[in-house]
């Protein structure tokens, strides 16, 4: 990928710094490193920066940027310029201390209603599906969708699943889902379209903590059959 990136405006108070358009560990490393670097050494008017798979959303207050700017260019241009300089300076790997978390998952039929269908689609027995699914260590690429919802991957090619054509109006809290080659845990009961293969009783959303999610981008997760 080299040092290629582009900065695109998302309206007047945010830009997206895009390093690519793929689910890749290398790209995501750059993303997390850049989000950390910009948060640690912000420009005037900076509000927050958060990682997606291969891009960083940077939010700012246009009023502060304008007040502190010495040029007549647009706010978005001056933020983009400040960010470009920092992309070049940022490391390709974050210094974030990667944690490995083990999460117990219940794969019983009531906990994972889509598991039989998923196994069938993959041409595997349920036991083999679980064995392959739990053999791998998953990376947390980003959080989104719901507070504490971690997008993880990369799921074995053999286990790849389509989204449900008819999303459920309610998925139970703690449900472990697969969509494409991503996996994730619903931190709260919510509507959703992922295939539900199991359920954990570990709290993913920690509203009373100033770090309100169990998982953070860059963490690694192992599922253990309970």
């Amino acid at each position: 990928m080299g040092s290629g990136f582009k900065i695109v405006p998302l309206g007047l108070d945010a830009v997206s710094v895009e390093f690519g358009d793929a689910i890749s560990i290398d790209l995501n490393e750059r993303v997390i490193a850049f989000a950390d670097a910009i948060s640690a050494d912000p420009f005037p008017g900076f509000v927050e920066a958060f990682p997606a798979y291969s891009s960083v959303t940077v939010v700012f207050d246009p009023r502060v940027v304008r007040r502190t700017s010495t040029t007549t260019e647009t706010v978005v241009d001056s933020v983009s310029k400040a960010l470009s300089e920092r992309v070049d300076a940022a490391a390709s790997r974050s210094s974030y201390e990667r944690r490995i978390l083990e999460i117990q998952v219940d794969f019983s039929p009531s906990a994972g209603p889509d598991l039989p269908e998923c196994a069938k689609r993959s041409g595997l027995s349920i036991a083999d599906f679980i064995r392959i699914f739990t053999a791998r260590e998953y990376r947390v690429f980003m959080l989104g969708f719901l507070p504490g919802f971690a997008y993880m991957g990369i799921v074995d090619k053999e286990l790849e699943q389509p989204r449900r054509p008819d999303p459920r109006s309610r998925i139970e809290k703690g449900s472990v889902g697969i969509a494409g080659r991503q996996t994730g845990i619903y931190p709260l009961a919510s509507p959703g379209g992922w295939q539900i293969v199991g359920r954990t009783y570990v709290e993913m959303f920690l509203p009373r903590s100033d770090r309100p999610a169990l998982l953070a981008p860059g963490d690694r997760v192992r599922f253990i059959q309970s």
Binding site: E48, L143, L146, P147, G148, A150, P187, R211, A213, P217
Partner: peptide
Amino acid sequence: RRGFGRFGVN
């Protein structure tokens, strides 16, 4: 609420 996008908090 700003500053918690990295935890999925909108």
